[in-house]
Design a protein around this nucleic acid. Structure first.
Lengths: 105, 105
DNA sequence: CGGTATCCTTCAGGATACTG
DNA sequence: CAGTATCCTGAAGGATACCG
């Protein structure tokens, strides 16, 4: 598969950027915490996305066998390399939305 | 709307990154040329995406009233600011896909 | 050439209930 | 707590035909 296609698929999934954004701003996040920080996401979607991101080596899943169970999600090395990109996307969004609003006036 | 949400929506649409990627590598592209450079896209989708990107001030549409008609699409100032981001996404994809393939071995 | 209009299909994503 | 399993809906996306 073409690297660009691979990257565009990862970046271009509805919930992936929001999830990665949360993980960029928090060292390690639990499942339900992640869900709380992502208003509108359903459990099914969160699970699917995390699974895919984990398989792609972008997110790390650490399971602690305690009662009650605890699972922590964090960025892998690959995921951390994505962090500055996500940051610049947010910055771009901030600049661009201002331009749009100026036009509306 | 939150700037991050706005940016994630733009970036997170299936065909937007591929389209912007083509426009990043070509100063100005015609409709059918764009379609040819994006294998798999349908006319409907290309039209919808271009319309939305134009409304968001990311893509510029220049119409020449000739016979036969000619329409050129290019990046606006906002769109050009996105170019380095797209480039770094592609670079990230190239590095990451290698890591994935190494794991498969 | 560069679309639009129309109708159709598929699957991403959602709701709910249940489990180790 | 952190999921699975199941079923379901709607909207993203596709195919086709036609138009300025």
């Amino acid at each position: 598969m073409c690297p660009a296609t691979f990257a565009f698929d990862v970046i271009g999934k509805k919930w992936n950027l929001p999830i990665l954004s949360v993980l960029t701003n928090n060292k390690s996040v639990r499942y339900n915490e992640l869900k709380r920080l992502l208003p509108g996401i359903t459990g099914t979607m969160l699970t699917n996305c995390l699974k895919e991101l984990t398989e792609h080596g972008i997110v790390h899943r650490e399971q602690y066998f305690e009662i009650p169970p605890r699972v922590e999600y964090s960025l892998t090395k690959s995921g951390e390399e994505l962090a500055p990109i996500i940051e610049s996307i947010v910055v771009w969004g901030r600049n661009n939305i201002e331009m749009l609003q100026d036009k509306m006036k």
